[in-house]
């Protein structure tokens, strides 16, 4: 299987995606941003469709849309109760725009399904290189601001008292999230990207009690999901995102059951 270049690319990209998602996911969960992550992926879909319409790489369209909107959401303020409804409205607009751009672009339908559901065969070596650059940038920034991010995500009251620049932090975090969503969507597809960015971390919470360990567990869960998903997809020819979704859901519910049994 790994003698095919497209599978090599898929495994390389998948590994990166799993690592980034596991790390970012822990903060997404701590900051209660599952819903927002879902919306960002829909915005990513609109961006990718726009990219195709413009004749760019879909990833670039995605980066453009998700980054701009993540900064916009940061401006909406972290605690506004209006935020949830605004986000729903933005989602609706994003999906509408995505559909419009796709129908305006003279591309075939497989492009659209690729964006929405992800694909294994669509990943070129050039894609992988770009994804490596993006992922490494996300990782480096997370490393540098790790302690601030940890404090602000796991104890916003304490971080505020400490005088951390919490507003700036949340915008920086959203931009990192935009990058992660765009990278991850390449394999999993924008419909299911929030799975990798939420479920492994949500499950990890029940097995680990330090931020570092939660990250390890979440990365492990998403790596297993991606690697196994790619393999099963190769063997059965079914979509990879289906397998990833099922595997991560199993992890999540096992974690809940584990928690019940222990309590």
């Amino acid at each position: 299987m790994l003698s095919y270049p497209f599978m090599q690319n898929a495994y390389m990209a998948g590994t990166l995606i799993a690592i980034i998602s596991g790390i970012m996911g822990v903060f997404v969960i701590a900051r209660n941003m599952s819903f927002l992550t879902h919306t960002l992926s829909e915005i990513g879909f609109a961006g990718a469709a726009f990219g195709i319409f413009m004749g760019w790489q879909p990833l670039n369209g995605m980066l453009l849309f998700t980054t701009i909107s993540s900064i916009g959401v940061g401006e909406l303020g972290a605690k506004s109760s209006r935020r949830e409804n605004s986000i729903t409205a933005i989602s609706a607009l994003a999906i509408g725009l995505g559909i419009l751009f796709l129908s305006l672009a003279d591309s075939n339908a497989s492009y659209a399904t690729g964006i929405l559901f992800g694909s294994v065969i669509g990943i070129s070596r050039a894609n992988v290189v770009q994804m490596v650059i993006l992922s490494v940038s996300v990782l480096v920034v997370v490393m540098v601001i790790y302690r601030y991010l940890k404090f602000d995500s796991f104890d916003p009251v304490g971080a505020q008292v400490k005088g951390l620049w919490t507003r700036t932090l949340s915008v920086v975090f959203l931009v990192l999230l935009a990058f992660s969503v765009s990278v991850a969507a390449q394999i999993v597809g924008s419909l299911l990207i929030f799975i990798l960015l939420t479920l492994p971390a949500a499950a990890a919470k029940y097995f680990a009690h330090t931020v570092g360990k939660m990250i390890n567990v979440a990365v492990a869960f998403s790596l297993i999901g991606v690697w196994l998903g790619l393999y099963l997809s190769y063997v059965t020819n079914w979509p990879v995102s289906f397998f990833i979704a099922v595997i991560e859901v199993i992890f999540y519910f096992s974690a809940l059951v584990y928690q019940r049994i222990r309590a």
């Binding site: 490393m143 540098v144 302690r147 940890k150 104890d155």
Partner: peptide
Amino acid sequence: PQFRNIDAEYPLSIQDFVGLNFAKIGVPW
């Protein structure tokens, strides 16, 4: 503070929670 939103599912250990206050640029651990 008088109020803090720590619910029953809050995952961090007491030790890790206390250590959060070492917030500065530095090695992650």
